[in-house]
């Protein structure tokens, strides 16, 4: 068991290394730092000196992989790869292209992201499972049929529409909550209600449908027939046996995204001006701040791989078949 976890842990290292090499190639090989400098400084009439200065300031003046001018270990250390990529492993994100400390920004901004994403996930899970259970309980009836139709319609609407429509109706017409913004402490709640409601509604269509298929798969299994033969009612069977079994894939599916909640949601945060990591990333993309984008790519992968690890562990906890063999 512990060996298994260690094994999974070790497997994360080559994965992260792969991510690192990939981002390095994307950011430094496909386009050279010179190209980036020219892009940032404006296309025309850029002097060689200005480009050099720009690179110098941000540490892009070093050679890519191998520094011939240095001695000993510094041959490796004084390179862009080491400075920019390897340091990520130590969670030293460095300075953004616009001169801010990325590490500090991330620390500060991940909490608002979490404050939106976590309630969204939990409420969404609750709502989706409830809807899916109702559909399975009333299977074959018109209630189920109309819910399926509703789900298909809901999932055919662009998430942008949910946000714009939600902001318009709840925020602007009804004036129930502020349209956007964020505040520290408990005041945050009034800003969080709207984004959470909107993203839960936006997720019902696909979520409920997905859980329904999971439940239906279980319902057709033999042990459910045994449960009925014992004398359990349809509802008891569903709650005691089907739910219990279907929760295993559901929970492990949730566990994998848990760490990623810190990353926040890109569009939601930018629409509601929530100062989380999502809007941070969007701003960086729009400002073409490569250092931040690179850091976020790495952070995202670390969190995802951590999520995979958690999934493996959670399987061994939740599923007796895995735990005891």
């Amino acid at each position: 068991m512990i060996q298994y976890i260690i094994r999974r842990f070790l497997y994360a290292i080559p994965l992260l290394f792969g991510v690192n090499v990939l981002t390095f190639v994307l950011f430094f090989i496909v386009n050279s730092p010179d190209d980036m400098a020219r892009m940032q400084l404006g296309q025309k009439h850029v002097t060689e000196q200005a480009v050099e200065n720009w690179k110098q300031q941000r540490g892009y003046h070093l050679p890519l992989l191998w520094n011939d001018q240095q001695q000993g270990i510094k041959k490796v250390k004084e390179t862009i790869f080491y400075q920019k990529s390897v340091n990520l492993f130590l969670f030293q994100f460095g300075i953004s292209d616009s001169g801010r400390n990325i590490g500090a920004d991330i620390k500060q901004r991940m909490w608002p992201s979490l404050a939106v994403a976590l309630p969204t996930l939990l409420v969404g899970l609750l709502v989706n499972i409830t809807v899916a259970l109702m559909m399975v309980l009333f299977r074959g009836s018109y209630l189920e049929f109309s819910s399926i139709v509703l789900c298909v319609i809901l999932m055919s609407i662009s998430s942008l529409f949910y946000i714009i429509g939600g902001q318009f109706v709840i925020g602007k017409l009804l004036k129930l909550v502020p349209i956007s913004g964020y505040d520290g402490g408990l005041d945050a709640i009034k800003f969080l209600v709207l984004p959470v409601i909107i993203s839960v509604i936006a997720g019902i269509g696909s979520g409920a449908r997905w859980y329904r298929t999971l439940f239906l798969e279980e319902v057709n299994k033999d042990y459910v027939r045994t449960a009925r033969a014992k004398g359990l009612t349809e509802t008891q069977t569903l709650f005691r046996h089907v739910l219990q079994n279907a929760l295993i894939p559901i929970l492990t599916g949730v566990v994998v995204v848990l760490p990623l909640l810190f990353m926040g949601s890109l569009i939601l945060e930018s629409f509601f001006s929530i100062p989380g990591l999502g809007s941070y990333t969007i701003d960086a993309i729009n400002r073409q701040d490569f250092a931040i984008v690179r850091s976020m790519v790495f952070l995202g992968s670390v969190l995802y791989i951590f999520g995979l690890l958690l999934t493996d562990i959670s399987y061994t906890i939740v599923d007796p078949r895995v735990r005891l063999s």
Partner: peptide, 23 residues
């Protein structure tokens, strides 16, 4: 490895690079 990079970010990074290249 590919999966572990959040999709939006990978797309963003690549598109940024395409932009630089095109510019």
């Amino acid at each position: 490895t590919l999966n572990s990079i959040p999709g939006v970010l990978l797309i963003a990074a690549s598109i940024l690079m395409v932009q630089v290249y095109m510019a």
